Simulated assay, not measured.
Amino acid sequence: MFETDRLLIKPIESIHVNALYEIYMSNPDYVNLTEGTTDGEGSYTKEQMLRDLHIAELTGRQVMGIFKKMDQEMIGFLEYWEKADVDQMPWLGLLIIHKKYQGKGYGTEVTKGFLQWATSVGWPEVRIAVVKDLKDVVSFWQSFGFLPFAEKDKRFPSGMKQLVCMKYQCK
């Protein structure tokens, strides 16, 4: 799909399922926020993740692995829609970096690369939705030029959350 100085972003394959699950579960705050099940009632299983990936595929979402060029280790993943059902616009649905690789600039590098790629393929804009209470995450996206354009409520397994919808104008 695209690459950056240190990373390759490409489709995941069945051999990446265990790494994908490990990446997801390395972020227990996110799992708790969205699924409501990190160590209390219930749990988010690999089977549930596989179900979610299947649903993603059925709805046109693309799931890409984030791999270090140096050793091909998968350190994260992103999901996007070229044309989301809700408005036929491109959306970045999820960007997760393994906890042990956070704070090393990988999220910034992937985001810059993704936005350059989106611009190069002719997308007019990229949209995202962020849980409003996650002020640091909202600030992260604003640092790239994403601007709020709407708010909406969404039901997660963990309950209702208010989302800030933001968009980036490709140049």
Rank of each mutant, 00 (worst) to 15 (best):
M1G: 10
M1V: 15
F2L: 10
D5E: 12
I15P: 00
I15S: 12
H16T: 05
H16I: 01
V17Y: 15
N18S: 13
A19K: 09
E22Q: 14
I23S: 12
I23G: 10
I23V: 15
N27R: 06
N27D: 15
E35W: 02
T38P: 14
D39N: 09
G40H: 05
K46Y: 10
Q48M: 13
Q48H: 14
L50C: 09
L53P: 08
I55E: 09
I55Q: 11
R61H: 09
R61T: 11
V63K: 07
M64R: 10
F67S: 00
K69M: 00
Q72N: 15
M74V: 08
I75G: 00
G76R: 03
F77N: 11
L78M: 15
E79A: 12
D85Q: 12
M89G: 04
W91C: 06
G93K: 02
I97A: 07
K100A: 00
Y101D: 00
Q102I: 06
K104H: 13
G105C: 01
Y106V: 04
G107P: 13
T108S: 07
V110L: 05
V110T: 13
V110N: 05
T111M: 14
T111C: 02
T111G: 01
T111H: 01
G113K: 07
F114P: 01
S120Y: 03
W123V: 03
R127I: 02
I128C: 11
V130C: 08
K132T: 14
D133E: 15
K135I: 14
V137A: 15
S139H: 10
Q142H: 02
Q142D: 01
S143E: 04
G145W: 02
E151L: 08
D153E: 13
K161N: 05
V164H: 04
V164D: 05
K167M: 06
C170N: 08
C170E: 04
